[in-house]
Amino acid sequence: MSEIITVENTFETKYITAQNATFEKTEGGFVSVQFEGNFYPRADFCRAFPLSAPDVYISVRESSGKHREIGMIENLLEFPQDIADMIRTQINLRYFTPKITKLHSAVDANGTTTFDCDTDKGRCTFVIRGGSDAVIRLSDTRIIFTDVDGNRFEIADLTKFTRREQKKLDLYI
């Protein structure tokens, strides 16, 4: 009755630090990792708490196969600046979310709303569908919009907006 299936030990967390691993930028724009005697030509970086604690607990994973976890970074802020920046470029792509800095207009039509705003990535117009799915309220002042295509936009601090902008936004959040 015994089936022979070997499963590797997956419930131990290995912590990766700048000391026990070597990170290197690859030609192709990725990051390679040397850790515990293994070389990974490309590693993916996923945040455990992308919304609430973006810099702590970052899972470093193989980029192919079963995407096994190589290890976890406990706190990115404890890394040397250059390595942290290297890792951050990878993370920024995965969690690409422009921050809205100014709201030009919000126009309703047929149950959708078209926002025209300035973001830290440039000015942008996007459409969200009405209903609660499109708007995630992370706190009283922090909001994430998901547009009809799946793009995300963030309002990092609602109080930084003018009263007029807040009034406009108030209809959707």
Binding site: D116, G122, R123, C124, T125, F126, V127, D149, N151
Partner: peptide, 8 residues
């Protein structure tokens, strides 16, 4: 860079 990206 784009002056304005219009996703619509």
């Amino acid at each position: 860079q784009l002056k304005r990206l219009d996703m619509t």
